[in-house]
Amino acid sequence: MAIEAPDPLHQHGLPTAGIRRRLASLLYRRQTLLLLLLLTPPLLWFGVVYLGSLLALLMQSFYTFDDFTMAVTPELTLANFRAIADPANPLFGANIDIVLRTLGMAAAVTVACALIAFPIAYYMARYARGWQKGFFYIAVMAPMWASYIVKAYSWTVILAKGGIVYWLGQALGLNALLEAVLSLPMVGGSSLSTSNLGRFMVFTYIWLPFMILPIQAALERVPLSLLQASSDLGARPAQTFRTVMLPLAFPGVVAGSIFTFSLTLGDFIVPQLVGPPGLFIGNYVYTMQGAVGNIPMAAAFTVVPVVLISLYLALARRLGAFDAL
């Protein structure tokens, strides 16, 4: 690696080199100028294009949509928000159903992900060594990055009638049990791929890696000496786990749950492919802006997940999730 270093005392060589040199030393002396030059493009992109779009969207949530002419006029109104938040509004019932349906699924998926992820993360952090460490890491990351739409598609294949799950149920003689579960009111449906149970499985599968990695990172940071101290002081392994390990791992669980919760809240592809009819927040927004053309209502509805996630983040902060990040 040869570094061409022109002698600073003899800068009168090529004129272009001189200009370059002067520009370089100007930027070196004026660090703020350099900072400004570096920051301007990302600032323009994010501050103008992205934040601008978000603000424009927020603005449009106050616009008026005419049900008869299907036209949007820039007259400011609170009607869209009333339809979501005011129980006296005729649309409130249907809208709050959508919100509660999505919220319920997000909560269930988050709990399931935490339960399944914890043992995997615990094994990764505590027992995996040498090649196993890399193996587990890549074995969690590869499915996380593998195409989202293909993973969703794969589940429609797995859950299809005559597909793998039904075949397995038949082979093990469990199809009667499956039918019994599917006949339950809330979770069931006419088949696995049109049931809430199926949708719940797909969501849990797709967001699981997002829960494993933060828990593993939190567990990784627990010093071994702490666990030794606990057992030296006479705690049984289960006691050490409950009183030392779990509180220290909890921020990781909360960090992971931010992903699973927020990703489920905003999704509209999985509800479209698997599960019973009945809109999720994402599907409603999508239909409103697309087929109906009611952008103001769609815009107002996007505020719902943002508010829910903000509330959740505030709660997570109280639980100390960010101290661990």
Binding site: F46, G52, G266, T302
Partner: peptide
């Protein structure tokens, strides 16, 4: 971080309306 922290649907519809 916002574009991946916010649900994709918000980024999508915001950009579309812009």
């Amino acid at each position: 971080i916002l574009p991946i922290a916010l649900p994709g649907i918000i980024t999508g519809i915001a950009l579309l309306s812009a």
